[in-house]
């Protein structure tokens, strides 16, 4: 129990609900799930989804069926840094296969796995709307484009440094 959004997030939820006509608060589900994922460890555990159901006054099943449908909601724990590398055709034309291989070797994990220190998870995802700047990946709220091995090394270093300073 005792799962609760921070004060700031509660205000955000309230303002999201106000975007819709009265009684249509279910529309807030996708945005609120994003907030919940940010707040509660990067993935959506069942108690988290139940909590979202409660604050939106809908049934838990309505939350589960949505959370499992969309690719951005993680249904199991992920590393602190999630590398989502695009593998679709246009990126493939510019070497996404090689970049994915490079990251796999560099981090010693397969697609879908997390490094043993819990730092990095690698996912291969579909077109992210950056096809002209390929190969690319999504990292948190940003895109990293025109990737090459040196850039990937830099990103990994950067993540490690940020993580070390924050601890």
């Amino acid at each position: 129990m005792a799962l609760q959004f921070s004060e700031k997030k509660r205000e955000e939820v309230a303002s999201i609900i106000k975007r819709y006509p009265d009684g249509k608060q279910k529309s807030a589900l996708l945005p609120v799930l994003h907030l919940a994922q940010e707040e509660f460890g990067g993935w959506l555990d069942v108690p988290v989804m139940d909590y979202v159901a409660e604050i939106l006054n809908i049934t838990p099943i309505e939350v589960y069926e949505v959370a499992t449908f969309y690719s951005m909601y993680n249904m199991k724990p992920v590393g602190k840094y999630l590398f989502e590398v695009c593998q679709t055709g246009p990126c493939m034309l510019n070497g996404s296969d090689d970049i994915i291989e490079y990251i796999k070797t560099k981090l010693g994990i397969k697609i879908g796995e997390t490094t043993s220190d819990g730092m990095f998870t690698l996912k291969a995802v579909e077109c992210l709307g950056a096809c002209g700047y390929a190969p690319m990946m999504q990292l948190g709220k940003t895109y990293r484009e025109h990737l090459n091995p040196e850039k990937v090394d830099g990103i990994i270093e950067q993540c490690r440094t940020i993580s070390a300073t924050n601890n």
Binding site: L29, E65, F69, Y70, Y73
Partner: peptide, 20 residues
């Protein structure tokens, strides 16, 4: 939430209503 199909206009409306 990440779903190509939500570009289809009626899927988009479903999604905007908080559904699959």
């Amino acid at each position: 939430g990440g779903a190509y199909i939500c570009g289809e206009e009626t899927a988009l409306l479903e999604s905007l209503e908080g559904k699959r």
